[in-house]
Amino acid sequence: MSLSSKLDDFHRQTTENRWLWLFSIFCRIILAVGFIPPGIMKIMGERFTVLSVNHPMGNYLEALHHTGYYYTMIGVMQVVAGVLLLIPRTVILGAFIYFPIILNICILSLAVRFEGSRITSPLMVLANLYLICWYYPAWKSILPFNRPARQSLRAKWRELHPQFPFKFFSGVALAFTAVILFAVFGNELVPRNTLKECRTQCDESDNPAACYTFCDCIHKEGQPLNKCLETYNNASGK
């Protein structure tokens, strides 16, 4: 019997157990509860810890809170993953979105020895893995030893159409150009990596003095980006 067949048999025997089925529902609910409330707090821009910034985890979370829409996006993905877990038709998608987020939290908690999630986050990783395994038939075809016995997903080289897709590669070129233009011109000010590099953009700024203040705020005072931008806008009268 092949490994694929053994896994199929084991999964079938497991999913026929009533208590294991109830446990999968419990995992879905508890994981959703673990992500949706803190995710909503991030979306609202609120801190979710009272740790001192001198604490390793508190220092990290304080910096994370000042990352702007990155902080918000983490909250959005947490809420999305949690909601998807509660909907039967989207459980597997929610589980795969959930996994890298909770795995990152778990590794972070263990790395800084944070008592607040040093126990819960590993348990949540295991619960997430349980759900992924529970829905094994939905994704098993991606495994290298479990290819479906159907027509190959890719045609052979000689069977491929030779016509060059001008529209597609034009879209690729436009996307590439848009990303470059946004990176260069999308923000009026950027912190750069050093104080010297930051100041190089001040001569071309509408308000060089305010720009120098911005750079000092970042590199000398160590203030959050949003606060330094606010200082710059106030100095520029915006």
Rank of each mutant, 00 (worst) to 15 (best):
S2V: 01
F114T: 07
Y136Q: 05
G68Q: 08
F23W: 13
G94K: 02
M1E: 14
R199P: 05
G94M: 01
F99G: 02
P100E: 05
K167I: 00
Q201T: 04
P144Q: 06
P191A: 00
K42M: 06
G222N: 15
L86A: 01
M57H: 12
M73W: 14
G237M: 04
R12L: 07
N146V: 01
F169M: 00
G222W: 15
R147A: 02
Q163G: 14
F35T: 09
D9E: 12
A155V: 05
W139V: 00
S121I: 07
E204R: 13
K196H: 12
M57E: 03
F99E: 01
V184S: 06
P148C: 01
Q163L: 12
E221F: 11
A127T: 10
I43C: 03
L93I: 11
Y69N: 08
T200M: 02
M1S: 10
N234W: 11
S236W: 13
Y232C: 00
K196E: 14
F214L: 01
F26V: 08
S152H: 12
K167W: 14
G94S: 06
Y98R: 03
L229V: 00
S170Y: 13
F176K: 03
K238T: 01
P137Y: 07
L225K: 15
G75D: 13
G58N: 04
R18M: 10
F166L: 12
M77E: 09
V112I: 06
S109P: 04
D8G: 06
N207K: 13
F169L: 03
F164E: 01
N59Y: 13
G39R: 03
L181R: 07
P38W: 05
C106Q: 07
F185D: 03
Y98D: 03
T49R: 08
F168R: 14
L93A: 10
F168M: 03
I74T: 13
E204P: 01
M41L: 10
I132P: 12
E115S: 14
V83D: 01
I92S: 07
S236Y: 14
K196D: 11
V50G: 10
S170V: 04
L110S: 04
A178Y: 15
H65Q: 09
L129T: 06
D206N: 11
R158A: 08
V79S: 00
G94F: 03
A95G: 10
I101P: 02
P88N: 05
C27M: 09
I218L: 06
F185L: 02
N59A: 11
F185I: 00
V33F: 14
Y60W: 15
G116C: 03
H219G: 05
V76A: 03
D8M: 05
W19C: 04
F164A: 04
F169Q: 00
R12T: 15
I105M: 08
V190I: 09
R18H: 15
S117D: 11
P165M: 04
Y71R: 03
F145M: 02
I87C: 00
L64E: 09
K220Q: 15
C133Q: 10
R147I: 02
P56R: 10
F48V: 07
G116R: 11
P144S: 02
R154N: 12
T177Q: 08
I119G: 09
A95W: 09
M44S: 09
M57W: 11
T120H: 08
T72Q: 09
W139R: 06
F48G: 08
I40M: 06
L229W: 11
V179C: 01
Y232W: 13
T213R: 11
C202E: 09
L195S: 08
V190P: 13
L123Y: 09
L153P: 12
